[in-house]
């Protein structure tokens, strides 16, 4: 492999990591409160607002059921508004964030719903407010599940980020399409796939390890 190729791969890997990291960060920023709200706003729950809950649920489902490649194209005007352009890594972050937010929200909702209702009851019994229950009980107790959910989201984002390569988003996907596919360089394609595999493995094992460390429910020596 030529030094030029290695430089290209390193650059693209950097772009991919940048897109995924920024998108994951922003999506978590929006997805966490959204997920907590979805998990606590049903009938008779802490922030009971069954109608808002239902409407948000529909919006989240609609976003999640839109194929990513269609989402990318469909929101181009919005992307231009936010990023000032519709091509390049910064522009790619917009659709990545929009796709990941509802995904993360659902994963966090699931993790929060796993928390034993008895803990909410106990916290109410000693005088905790709904906000305190979220901050001091629900999120800490759901943390191992949340970390696993975020790991899954980052892995999905790595896949999505390769897709934005197809519409000029930069990163490893872009490299694979332009060099590997259009310039018939199978070794480049292979390198891109290998780097992605390594990234996914790394993210997954870091996430697993972190979740295991945070999980105090099971005794490990």
């Amino acid at each position: 492999m030529s030094p030029e190729m290695i430089r290209l791969i390193a650059n693209s890997t950097g772009e991919t990591l940048y897109m995924v990291a920024v998108a994951a960060l922003i999506a978590t920023l929006f997805g966490l409160p959204l997920g907590v709200f979805l998990a606590t706003s049903g009938k008779g729950e802490l922030f009971a607002a069954p109608w808002v809950n239902r409407v948000l649920g529909v919006v989240v489902n609609a976003t999640r059921s839109t194929p990513f490649i269609i989402l990318v194209v469909a929101i181009i005007p919005f992307t231009r508004l936010i990023a000032g352009t519709s091509i390049g890594t910064n522009a790619a972050i917009v659709p990545l964030t929009i796709a990941a937010t509802p995904f993360i929200a659902r994963l966090i909702e699931g993790a929060i719903r796993e928390v034993d209702q008895g803990l909410i009851e106990a916290a109410r019994a000693f005088g905790a407010s709904p906000i305190q229950i979220v901050r001091k009980v629900l999120i800490p107790e759901a943390l191992p599940g949340i970390v696993l959910g975020l790991t899954l989201a980052v892995v999905s984002l790595l896949g999505f980020s390769a897709m934005v390569g197809a519409v000029g988003g930069g990163g490893l996907g872009d490299l694979g399409i332009r060099y590997g596919y259009q310039r018939f360089m199978p070794e480049m394609m292979l390198a891109v796939v290998v780097v992605l595999i390594v990234l996914v493995q790394a993210v997954q094992s870091i996430g697993d390890r972190l979740a295991r460390r945070l999980n105090k429910r099971i005794r490990h020596a």
Partner: peptide, 29 residues
């Protein structure tokens, strides 16, 4: 409710907090 304590059949302790941290929770709140 701070002047009405309650204990439960299934204890309802936070698994993510140690014994001392569980006891501290109502005080933090």
């Amino acid at each position: 409710r701070r002047s009405i304590g309650m204990i439960f059949q299934h204890f309802n302790l936070l698994s993510s907090r140690t014994a001392a941290q569980n006891i501290a929770l109502p005080l933090e709140v």
